[in-house]
């Protein structure tokens, strides 16, 4: 996929229409999504902003093929995700999606390099684990175990793990949620760099409004709907952010 820094490229990677999601929590019905229409474009860096309970995680999970919507339709390029079975969704995740978790979720018994390798071994044309780790600035920490690294470093390993298989889209759920500001900025820099250099469509969900300034596009979620969409007039580099 060619790098495309343009804020509005023509071909949408994701198309969602009328997405609804209703959870049953015991005897209570929770409407997490109440009709979301969305298009995400190749190479875009999108921040989903909203308070907890606004439905942003649910939306991310549905885009990532982890959860199925109650109503509506989602397309990834020409794959229809709605109604796909577990096997197809697993393949979709394996081939096209990179995930970054709030709590890193590294495998404690594997070194940084091996944590990346365990994913690249599944991929068709991955980059070498060393290259992925170098891209996030961890070229010198490759043989460290998670317990020997700081939270920021662990999160950067997680990013390296997510990008090493050259996914079309990188989905990050509160990637800086467990980190202090300075460490969080380093993680965002890594995401920014990946987006710019590899052209990976990147979706970051956060309730930290400070991050919004680095996005091409910011989607505000509230009560299960996209309430507002913004294109920052000037993208602020991650290293200038603070909160």
């Amino acid at each position: 996929m060619p790098p495309s820094p343009s804020p509005s490229p023509p071909a949408p990677v994701f198309r969602a229409h009328g997405l609804t999601k209703v959870y049953r929590m015991g005897e209570v019905e929770v409407h997490a999504l109440r009709g979301v229409d969305l298009e995400l474009f190749s190479g875009e860096f999108v921040v989903l902003l909203g308070p907890s309970g606004s439905g942003k995680s649910t939306l991310l999970n549905i885009l990532g093929g982890l959860d199925a919507p109650t109503g509506g339709d989602v397309w990834y390029v020409d794959h229809r995700l709605t109604g796909a079975d577990d096997r197809a969704l697993t393949r979709f995740r394996r081939e096209h999606v990179g995930f970054v978790f709030q709590f890193y979720n590294l495998i404690p018994s594997l070194t940084a390099r091996e944590n990346v390798a365990i994913v690249t071994e599944l991929a068709e044309h991955p980059m070498p684990p060393e290259e992925a780790l170098a891209r996030v600035g961890l070229g010198d920490r490759m043989d460290h175990f998670p317990a020997q690294m700081s939270g920021g470093e662990q999160q950067r390993v997680a990013i390296a793990r997510a990008i090493a298989k050259r996914p079309a889209v990188l989905l990050c759920d509160e990637p800086t949620g467990a980190l202090d500001s300075a460490t969080g900025v380093r993680v965002l820099e890594a995401l920014e760099q990946v987006n710019a250099q590899l052209g990976t469509t990147t979706v970051v969900i956060t309730h930290n409004a400070g991050i919004a300034a680095m996005a091409h596009r910011v989607l505000y979620l509230g009560d299960g709907r996209i309430v507002r969409e913004e294109r920052p007039p000037r993208r602020v580099p991650a290293k200038e952010l603070s909160w």
Partner: peptide, 16 residues
């Protein structure tokens, strides 16, 4: 469980 679920999210199949 968490480790395994993460790997599932990252694209590993149930079998793997």
């Amino acid at each position: 469980g968490r480790e395994l679920a993460s790997l599932r999210v990252l694209g590993m199949t149930r079998g793997e």
